[in-house]
Amino acid sequence: MNTLTHINIPYTVTKNASNANGFLLPNILYDKIKKVASTPIKGFYLQDIPEFTDYKFRMHKNAFVNDKLTIQAQLVRQDTNGYLVNIIVTKAKKASNRHETICSALFGFPLKGKTYQDSKRAC
């Protein structure tokens, strides 16, 4: 099975996702990246992906209304305890070809029941 272990998702900050001053609300961004975090590991589970059991979330900079962000999710570790997914949210800098980090997060998903890989080995 060819499992996608790295993805990039575009995200534009809207008025609904920001406060009265136009700053992106961290809880809105957290909810969005929480959904994206399960994408790189979908192919490893036969049924529903269990809720993450551990996470770290850190805001580095503010984002504003109409900012175009990129949410990058990558499977960084797979072991007998579960899967670790790293998330980085970036914004392109207008003056250069560089990107600045808006936030970062790390999510740990447990092995719960049989995974796709386990059932593949049993065949």
Rank of each mutant, 00 (worst) to 15 (best):
M1P: 14
N2A: 15
N2I: 15
T3G: 09
T5L: 14
I7V: 15
I7D: 14
I7R: 14
N8L: 09
I9W: 03
I9N: 00
P10T: 08
T12C: 08
V13W: 00
T14C: 06
T14V: 02
K15E: 14
N16G: 13
A17Y: 02
A17P: 00
A17R: 02
N19Y: 11
N19A: 09
A20W: 11
A20R: 14
N21C: 08
G22V: 03
L24V: 05
P26T: 10
N27C: 07
I28K: 05
L29D: 02
L29F: 04
Y30F: 15
K32D: 05
K32F: 09
K32G: 04
K32V: 13
I33L: 10
I33D: 02
I33V: 13
K35C: 09
V36C: 02
A37F: 08
S38N: 06
S38A: 10
S38G: 12
T39E: 15
P40W: 07
I41R: 02
I41Y: 08
G43S: 06
G43L: 14
F44K: 00
Y45S: 05
Y45M: 05
Y45C: 02
Q47Y: 14
D48T: 05
D48F: 06
D48N: 14
D48S: 11
D48W: 03
D48V: 04
I49Q: 11
I49A: 10
I49C: 09
E51I: 08
T53S: 07
T53W: 04
Y55H: 09
Y55R: 04
Y55A: 07
K56R: 07
K56A: 12
R58V: 11
R58S: 13
M59T: 07
M59Y: 01
N62S: 11
A63V: 10
F64A: 08
F64C: 09
V65E: 12
V65F: 04
D67N: 13
D67P: 07
K68C: 15
L69F: 12
T70S: 08
T70A: 05
I71T: 03
Q72G: 01
A73S: 06
A73G: 08
Q74W: 03
Q74P: 05
L75P: 00
R77W: 09
D79E: 04
D79S: 03
T80A: 15
T80Q: 15
T80K: 14
N81D: 11
N81H: 12
G82Q: 01
Y83N: 10
L84G: 07
I87W: 00
I88R: 07
I88N: 04
I88A: 07
V89E: 01
V89L: 09
K91L: 09
K91M: 04
K91R: 11
K93R: 12
A95I: 03
S96K: 13
S96F: 10
N97V: 01
N97F: 05
N97C: 02
R98P: 00
H99C: 13
H99V: 11
H99T: 10
E100N: 10
T101L: 01
I102F: 05
I102S: 01
I102M: 03
C103R: 01
S104T: 11
S104D: 09
S104I: 01
S104C: 07
L106W: 01
F107W: 01
F107I: 05
G108I: 01
F109V: 05
L111Y: 05
L111E: 00
G113Y: 12
G113I: 09
K114T: 15
K114A: 15
Y116D: 11
Y116W: 11
K120W: 05
R121W: 07
A122Y: 08
C123L: 14
C123T: 06
